[in-house]
């Protein structure tokens, strides 16, 4: 059971449990065959899953973070390649030969990259860009306050930034960042009409840098400042 969801792992399957998620058995024990287990303690209260040990760049860490969080409901994968990595990890940790510390970190990085790529592949078939785009839109809406970059958005769809930008433009008529602004203003409009939240909070919760930034962007498109819009 991971987070109340029951899973049966077969040979070659790989499960990832994120900080905050619970793993256990229905009756208090796991019905185990044989499985490799590895626990990584997160630094930084689990905000960034890949700690200082990782050799990935900051951008790459952020992308992997996003990908794992977005997919946290389905972190059980068919991943034969992971078996080999886990086996090597086990050997390194048991034998502690020279250089094992760096080797283990490298293997872990490799594992996270492999898992992220597999998640993307499972979710986004290039047969169905509209579906991929809809999923992306839902992810963006769930966390509008985040300062999304094109790289991050592209990573979620498993595309390179150039191809991603081209595809989005072609499909939606907007550049990725303009599409994002579009969703931000849409959500802000709804909150303004509700009359419950103050303008600064709306600005920040929909991802604008400040109420000033929100006000300028909103007026440029609609002709109203947010407070005028609210009064109308």
């Amino acid at each position: 059971m991971i987070d109340l969801q029951q899973h049966t792992l077969y040979p070659g399957d790989f499960a990832l449990v994120l900080p905050g998620q619970r793993i256990g058995g229905e009756t208090g024990i796991l019905n185990i065959g044989a499985l490799f287990g590895l626990k990584i303690s997160a630094e930084d209260c689990g905000k960034i899953l890949l700690g200082k040990w990782s050799g990935l760049t900051k951008k790459e860490k952020l992308s992997i973070n996003q990908i794992l969080l977005v997919n946290k409901q389905q972190l059980v994968l068919k991943l034969k390649e992971a078996q080999v990595l886990m086996h090597n990890l086990q050997l390194e940790l048991q034998n502690e030969e020279v250089g094992f510390y760096t080797r283990v970190n490298q293997l872990l990085d490799e594992l996270f990259v492999l898992v992220s790529r597999q998640l993307i592949r499972q979710n986004n078939s290039r047969r169905d860009f509209p579906q991929t785009f809809l999923k992306l839109e839902q992810t963006l809406r769930q966390n509008l306050a985040h300062q999304w970059t094109v790289e991050e958005m592209a990573a979620l769809t498993g595309m390179g930034t150039t191809a991603f930008t081209e595809k989005v433009k072609n499909y939606s008529g907007f550049s990725p960042l303009n599409y994002l602004i579009n969703i931000r203003i849409t959500e802000a409009t709804k909150l303004l009409k509700k009359n419950e939240v103050n303008v600064t909070d709306i600005a920040l919760s929909t991802g604008f840098y400040s109420s000033q930034h929100f006000s300028t962007t909103f007026k440029k498109l609609t002709g109203y400042t947010p407070s005028e819009f609210r009064k109308k």
Binding site: G173, F174, N178, N182, I183, I185, T186, T189, K190, L221, T222
Partner: peptide, 15 residues
């Protein structure tokens, strides 16, 4: 469909 999104999208494209 989200009516506000349709309106904002229309305004954006028109402008």
């Amino acid at each position: 469909q989200d009516p506000e999104q349709m309106f904002i999208t229309m305004l954006y494209i028109l402008k």
